[in-house]
Design a protein around this nucleic acid. Sequence first.
DNA 1: GCCATTTTTTGAACATGTTTAAAATTTACT
DNA 2: AGTAAATTTTAAACATGTTCAAAAAATGGC
Lengths: 232, 232
Amino acid sequence: MWYKHYMNETKTTVSKSQVTSRRLYEISMAHFLEKGFDQTTMRDLAAAAELSLGAFYYHFPNKEAVIQRFYQQSFDSFKYACDSVFAETENIEKRLLGVIEARLKTFEGSREILIVLSRSAVDPRSPLSPFGGDQKEIREKTVSIMREMIESSDLKCEKGLRTYLPELFWMYMMGMILFWVFDESNNQKKTRDFIQQLTPQIVRLIRYTRIPLSGTVLGPLKKTLEMLIGPR
Amino acid sequence: MWYKHYMNETKTTVSKSQVTSRRLYEISMAHFLEKGFDQTTMRDLAAAAELSLGAFYYHFPNKEAVIQRFYQQSFDSFKYACDSVFAETENIEKRLLGVIEARLKTFEGSREILIVLSRSAVDPRSPLSPFGGDQKEIREKTVSIMREMIESSDLKCEKGLRTYLPELFWMYMMGMILFWVFDESNNQKKTRDFIQQLTPQIVRLIRYTRIPLSGTVLGPLKKTLEMLIGPR
DNA sequence: GCCATTTTTTGAACATGTTTAAAATTTACT
DNA sequence: AGTAAATTTTAAACATGTTCAAAAAATGGC
């Protein structure tokens, strides 16, 4: 073994490959953040790591794979942040705000990276599409987080609608991320303000659905949701 | 002059460059549609046109410029189609359905091209971003079409909301296009059905805003719209 | 510690979008 | 028609993401 070290009382072996790929990842991200993704050359990265170009490709199948790893890691810290949001309050509005805020925070300072990710995500054939490929898994996990957020919350609403909420909230968050990507204001303040403004209104509308009268609107809406998300 | 020809009683001179670039455009699109954008090489195109690679670049600054031209032309035929939709009915629901249907029709058979366009459109730095660059103009023209659609229609709704509708309908249409891009069903039937289902509900909600009672929801919504679209 | 096997690295080559300087062609004017 | 200026075309080079076969290094069992 190349490298052994002790972590939490358990011997953990780390292969040389893991060490190198982490190093490559860190060097790469540093370059991407400083010079931009497109402006950073694979040759730059290999040189900075004092490795050959081919060796880089041994560790990452392509340039995008590096930022896919970033996306994966950002998801992990997002998930972790959600736990503490849920521990803090049962109020659905606060939770939803907290979750979206947590998500944006994981992207903070990496807006250009997210743009690169988005442009692949929009391609249904790409492995970064939220519906196929590697991102599918993250989407499903995110929907599960939304489900968890709702189930243990104070939200009361029409039963049928409730089953669609996890996917709807996922879409809402994706929309806000898109808004954020396009938001050129200082530190994307516009996005933050917008979310603060819109989220309570959405929650309020959802709560209204308990009133029987709302059936007029809700009836046809359910069919629409089924077409959008799939049958329940 | 390389080429003169008569059109509508007026002498129109067509430069050699115009003739060549149209030819290149047509050859290119044929290849893109048959083999796919990424699978078609600039060398393929130059060879098919019996021109050198460099000559191709004299007529188009880059590969994407070819499909930008397609996008421009698709917009022109969309705009034309809208006129006949408006001539046909004043009913806002029918108009909105007709306009969106017309838009999708201009993309029919070119889904892959639209995917390529979308992945650039999602990048705020790209000339294809709807907010900057060349597409900005098309976005503004499309919003104007929506405005025209509303103004001469039978739609009655709360006055303040009305001023935001052109942009809102534009966003709605963009959303449906995105849905269409991801829709893998036969001939994107799911998208068509979804639009048929959702559009009348949206129109109905908008019409409800004439009822004074609706102020409870509409009040905060207006501020949200202002943040989304800008002040009126 | 030595050898067979596996993992990692290397350097060169390849594919394709793009640029460029010079040559060929076309145009506009007399 | 002849010529200077412009437009268009060419061939070669360049930049950069990616692949590949062979070499080097590391590993595991004896």
